[in-house]
Design a protein around this nucleic acid. Sequence first.
DNA 1: TCTGGGGTCCTAGGACCC
DNA 2: TCTGGGGTCCTAGGACCC
Length: 424
Amino acid sequence: MKAIVDCNSFYAACERLFKPSLHGKPVVVLSNNDGCIVSRTDEAKELGIRMAEPYYQNKLAIEKNKVAVFSSNYHLYGDISRRVMETLRSLSPSVEVYSVDESFLELTGINENKLYDYALFLKSTTELWTGIPVSVGIAPTKVLSKVANRLAKKDKIGTKGVVVLQTPSQQREALEKTAIEDIWGVGNANAKKLRLFNINTGWDLRNMNEEWARKNLGGIVGVRLIKELKGFPCIEMKDPLTTKKMIATTRMFGKPVYELQALKEAVSTYLSRAAEKLRRQKGACKTITVFVVRNDHTQFKSDYFPASKTAYINLPSATDLTNVMISHVMPLVEMLYQKGSKYIKAGIILGDIVPANMIQYNLFELGENLNQKKLMQVMDNINFGIKTDLVKFAALGTKRDWKMRQEMRSKRFTTIWDELREVR
DNA sequence: TCTGGGGTCCTAGGACCC
DNA sequence: TCTGGGGTCCTAGGACCC
């Protein structure tokens, strides 16, 4: 059996942790640049505020109902997430962190007659130790445990926040209650298609033929989905030690950018951030992709037609050195840049990632690279430990007009010395 | 005026090889 | 007049997830 433990309204819950006066009140958290709504408490959901909608479209309802609004504060959420996952690891031998706010647990060895009690224990302990409310779903497969979790979230009082789908009849009842688009792995495109075939619930899909799924539902992906719905595990637990295969840093700009120099500064900054992530997993990359997105004026003011241009480079040898990456990428930015265009976003993607200790240096590079490595270590230590970007390359610029807007960010209560909670 | 960011997996199709 | 078949590797792009 497998469990999924999922934090309720995670970002909003993190904000509430340090502002107890917000308990029972509607709270929302915005995406980067204060663009979209990405987390809502139940009270905010009841007001009709929808997930992933632009903030400005909901401003009226938000102001009228005195909803508390926060810009996203990833320092805070990352640290609270780590506490939640540490708690789960202390309670269960096999934890796969699936995202910032949810983990799968392998329950082999837990008494099959006591799964419900175990789920309640996971929930209460996590909430007591971290202050973050969670829901727990348990079932034979990952897909079914997601179904269970969703039902637990929907009816927090009736289910006590915990649903176990152990018997075939429990599974059938749950799947009949679950609309097709709410099944994990069925997105918008496939949901539409399935509805045309008159497949409307999870139970309808479970009863489809696997060969049909191979033809009509994304090949092997569809076959696995149906097997999982039937209770045969096909999506296995992932090794927690696996490293990322690509690392991306991409952002909308706070203000549009017109000048090449500003565009280069932004890309250099994103590159530095991505390189830090790369070094943290002790990797080196062989390819770098850079893209810029412009949105030039058209005759209609309201038009939103972003157009992106991409370039990539295959490095002569894998590297984890920020300055080497910058020197390779700047010519690409110059190539992509068109004078007179209005740039709204840029991003970089590091690919073809290999373990850093397997980099092959040639004889001439060797000595210099060792010095560079030390420099990177020193920079990373300073930047991780104290304040972001205290030490950086000149290419990153100092004005940084393009930096994203975060007008309503709470303090980084747990990770930045200057912003710690004070007790008098 | 204002529409996020960071990932994974899979497939199709082209290039190339013998 | 006749013009193979099978394999691999790579890339772009789609679909999905939170």
